[in-house]
């Protein structure tokens, strides 16, 4: 690494909301993520793309330490959020996950009422002092997730009774109710139809204003539509990262080019 690029990298790192250097993940013997250096900028949507098993979801789950749940999973290297090491022994994962929210591949609302789904996070973190405040948080979260108009008359109905797209937006409302700084999305639209997908994508674009978003997607069109920066992973390695436009119009690496033109993947 030349002095110039090192300096650039340092500058990048200061800008970055989430910054990783030489992150490796092992599932037992399997080396799932290899030497990943990636900076995720604040108030931008960063898309992680790549063929199945390339490590993009693994990387995503490093950021809020969901990988801790997997037995034999070992993470090395440095990964920081606002300059604080995420894997420091002193870090409380409960607090970390309040700062880094997550939306999953399959909509997974709790089998409780719509209200309780959104209110659960604020409740466990003691974020509302009284009922009125909690109501306020729930309403504004549903509003920001673009769901309020559709559900405001049936907040007491079970969240599992909503359509797939509404469920996913409910999960987004649930995630933003705890006011995270970063929202991780693991293929949030893969279980949705095109119309619901369009709504969620629109929502992601709006949320960018207040949150830093990292999204894993299999759809390159989606990455192109919603993200500002794109990172391409292949076989556990970060092949290329750059502005979305540049990645899709002028990829530097032959693998990236092969993938986005559909030659493999």
């Amino acid at each position: 690494m030349t002095a110039q690029t090192a300096a650039a990298s340092l500058a990048d790192r200061r800008l970055a909301k989430v910054s990783s250097r030489d992150v490796n993940v092992f599932y037992g013997e399997k080396h799932a993520l290899k030497h990943v250096d990636l900076d995720i900028r604040a108030n931008e949507v960063t898309a992680l793309i790549g063929p199945s098993g390339c490590g993009k979801s693994t990387y995503l789950r490093c950021i809020n330490r969901m990988n801790d749940l997997i037995e034999n999973c070992q993470v090395t290297g440095s990964l920081s959020l606002d300059g604080d090491d995420v894997y420091d022994k002193k870090v409380d994962v409960v607090q970390l996950r309040a700062r880094v929210g997550m939306v999953f591949q399959k909509p997974n609302p709790f089998p409780k009422s719509i209200y309780d789904n959104v209110a659960y996070g604020p409740r466990i973190h003691g974020m509302a002092r009284d009922q009125a405040e909690l109501d306020e948080v729930v309403m504004s979260s549903l509003e920001r997730a673009g769901l309020l108009a559709e559900v405001k008359d049936r907040l007491e109905e079970p969240g599992t009774g909503l359509s797939g797209g509404q469920q996913q937006r409910l999960c987004i409302a649930r995630a933003i109710a705890v006011s995270p700084e970063v929202i991780l999305m693991d293929e949030p639209c893969s279980a949705l139809d095109p119309i619901a997908t369009a709504k969620v994508e629109e929502l992601i674009d709006e949320l960018r204003e207040n949150f830093t978003i990292v999204i894993v997607t299999h759809s390159m069109q989606q990455a192109a539509r919603v993200s500002q920066r794109t990172a391409f992973f292949h076989l556990g390695e970060l092949v290329e990262v750059g502005d979305t436009e540049q990645i899709f119009t002028n990829p530097q690496h032959p693998l990236t080019q092969g993938y986005i033109t559909g030659r493999f993947g």
């Binding site: 809020n64 969901m66 749940l69 409960v94 607090q95 970390l96 996950r97 309040a98 929210g101 997550m102 999953f104 399959k106 997974n108 609302p109 709790f110 089998p111 659960y120 996070g121 466990i124 973190h125 999960c171 649930r174 995630a175 705890v178």
Partner: peptide, 26 residues
């Protein structure tokens, strides 16, 4: 289903909260 556990943990629930609030009632 694991998705319910992930949902709770992803929100910052502790393991015990995940069990008493979601897994055990279900």
């Amino acid at each position: 289903p694991p998705s319910i556990r992930e949902a709770a943990l992803g929100l910052g629930a502790s393991k015990q909260q995940m069990v008493t609030d979601h897994v055990l009632p279900l």
